[in-house]
């Protein structure tokens, strides 16, 4: 048998008729939404902790954020279920706890988070007098930091879920994708909280929330920038071409830089109330769109990366 492997150039990587090695994820809008809302949920967990209970406006923010986070935590599993091949077997995820499986830990994180968030909502309603006052005892004080901790985990896991797979692009962001997920989650959570506070007329807290949104958004941009450098060729499906342009337009420019500018104006200039409300609404909406497009781009780039046999032959460590 002749040995033809020596006749080829050494660095000429053969492929099998350019066919993909890996299977692409089957994930569609539902998983994108699940990750997006998971990030927001996580961010809200932090905000409900740091809002000061003694200041009336922040008390009110705490209440709003807790109720919103509980609604998201209760609704998100429903979205996750829609992506299963066998939705009726969703509860099989709760048969076991598997430390090595981000999907398993994430579902458990979500379950515990909804428990903590639910108890904290009961506390709020008991303080309000909607529920009997003794029911406050159902949510002892440690549940607030616990919800924040579980929130941080939930937001981070939405990144590890992607980066700890065999997908070459996702794997190339083993640090960047989880860190960016946390930042994006908190930026979106702050945006949602300022939006809700504006609608409630609770304007006093909006500027603080917007400062938090600015910090998280700036951190996200720095991480994405470093990711582009670190990912090299693995990052092409995400940073280059049509998807790269989309990311630049929606997540970087419209979703982070524009709200950053709008929020800076809000901090620097004292605008009349109605105009300021419009500014907040616009900035928040843009941040939320940017957060969604980030998750969507991550998933879609993963699909393209899976179809590239050369990337899959040398999987990033």
């Amino acid at each position: 048998m002749p040995d033809l492997s020596e006749c080829r150039e050494r660095d000429d990587v053969p492929t099998y008729y350019e066919r993909p090695l890996l299977k692409a994820p089957h994930w569609e809008w539902n998983v994108v939404t699940y990750l997006f809302l998971g990030g927001i949920m996580g961010g809200l967990g932090l905000i409900q902790l740091i809002a000061h209970p003694e200041r009336p406006q922040e008390r009110r923010l705490k209440r709003t954020v807790r109720i919103t986070s509980f609604i998201l935590a209760a609704g998100n599993p429903a979205i996750l279920i829609t992506h299963l091949g066998r939705p009726e077997r969703f509860l099989n995820m709760l048969r076991i706890v598997k430390i090595k499986s981000p999907m398993s830990l994430g579902v458990w994180g979500l379950v515990l988070y909804s428990g903590a968030a639910g108890a904290n909502v009961v506390r709020e309603l008991a303080i309000d007098g909607v529920l009997p006052r003794w029911m406050r005892l159902l949510a002892p004080g440690f549940l607030a930091p616990l919800q924040a901790l579980l929130g941080a985990f939930t937001a981070g896991y939405t990144g590890v879920l992607l980066s700890a797979t065999a997908n070459p692009f996702w794997g190339s962001g083993k640090r960047h994708i989880p860190a960016a997920s946390v930042c994006s989650g908190l930026a979106s959570a702050s945006a949602l909280a300022s939006l809700l506070s504006t609608f409630e007329g609770n304007h006093a807290v909006v500027h603080k929330l917007e400062r938090l949104e600015m910090v998280a958004g700036a951190a996200e941009l720095l991480i994405l920038n470093d990711f582009k450098r670190a990912a090299g060729a693995y990052g092409a499906p995400f940073f280059k071409g049509k998807r790269g342009e989309r990311l630049l337009t929606y997540t970087v420019v419209a979703g982070t830089l524009a709200p950053l500018a709008l929020n800076l104006i809000g901090q620097a200039v004292k605008l009349p109330k109605p105009i300021d409300a419009v500014r907040t609404t616009l900035a928040s909406a843009l941040t939320l769109v940017g957060g969604y497009v980030l998750r969507e781009s991550l998933i879609e780039a993963g699909k393209e990366s899976a179809r590239d046999p050369r990337a899959a032959f040398r999987q990033p460590r």
């Binding site: 941080a152 590890v160 794997g171 083993k174 640090r175 960047h176 946390v182 999987q315």
Partner: peptide, 19 residues
């Protein structure tokens, strides 16, 4: 080929630092 779970420690650590 790379075992995906070997990337978990780096991922969780990065998320924790960011958080």
């Amino acid at each position: 080929p790379v075992l995906p779970s070997t990337r978990q420690p780096a991922g969780y650590t990065a998320a924790a630092v960011a958080a």
